[in-house]
């Protein structure tokens, strides 16, 4: 096992290209997951049992099956029914849907944590359902959930290497192609690991700060 620094500097630009795509996929996936999660959480509270039941089964199913197979499903099955997606878009949809089912639980807990008195006060002020949500419940429910949401976004970041399986040229895929070209696996693979470790250690610091900033519930 010999480590070659020259080779490291030679492949660094390619890997940086990959890191950019990895981060882009994480950000887009996080945004989608935040929206999908809210949709699932609200859908499960629907008064229509058909809607709430089918949404919770759908979420349960997505949470119980591997992201990799879901990515394959989106990437290979959807084109057969005429929906042709670029790999990155398919990957972002997969990440967003999968983690949306996790963030839905965070939203649910956050919404349940808003005291009943707030609902009653909204009703007493004669607010409509939509206004109750947008002006009373969500503004109080969302800040305490931010650390938990960030936790899932970090988890999502660590799952982005799966996108390499559907030909997205992110960090892992760049490292693999470099490794296969030069037939040197030690440096690219170790660097990928190091990149992930550094970024997740930094994000742990960010998470601590978020917990400090938003974690406490002030009432």
């Amino acid at each position: 096992m010999d480590w070659d620094w020259d080779f490291v500097w030679q492949i660094m630009p390619t890997l940086i290209q990959g890191v950019k795509i990895t981060i882009l996929a994480t950000i887009l996936g996080s945004i989608l997951a935040a929206i999908v999660g809210l949709g699932i959480a609200l859908g499960r509270r629907s008064e229509n049992p058909l809607v709430s039941r089918s949404i919770s089964w759908f979420a349960e199913f997505i949470r119980g099956t591997p992201l990799l197979v879901q990515l394959y499903f989106i990437f290979y099955v959807l084109p057969d029914i005429g929906i042709l997606l670029p790999p990155l878009v398919a990957g972002v949809i997969g990440l967003g849907l999968h983690y949306g089912t996790y963030t839905a639980e965070v939203y649910r807990a956050g919404i349940d944590n808003v005291p009943r008195g707030q609902w009653e006060a909204a009703k007493a002020c004669n607010l409509t359902g939509r206004h109750t949500w947008t002006h009373i419940i969500l503004p109080q429910a969302i800040p305490p959930m931010i650390p938990a949401l960030a936790n899932y976004f970090i988890a999502m970041f660590k799952e982005t290497p799966l996108l390499s399986a559907i030909t997205v040229l992110e960090l892992m895929n760049q490292a693999k192609s470099v490794a296969n070209t030069y037939y040197r696996y030690i440096e690219p693979m170790t660097l990928v690991g190091a990149f992930f470790l550094v970024i997740s250690l930094c994000s742990v610091v960010l998470l601590r700060w978020l917990e400090h900033r938003y974690g406490r519930i002030e009432r």
Binding site: K158, Y185, M189, G193, F196, L197
Partner: peptide, 14 residues
């Protein structure tokens, strides 16, 4: 801190 995917590839290739 590192993803399962990277660990697996590291174990198998490195």
């Amino acid at each position: 801190g590192t993803s399962i995917f990277v660990q697996l590839f590291w174990a198998y290739f490195v």
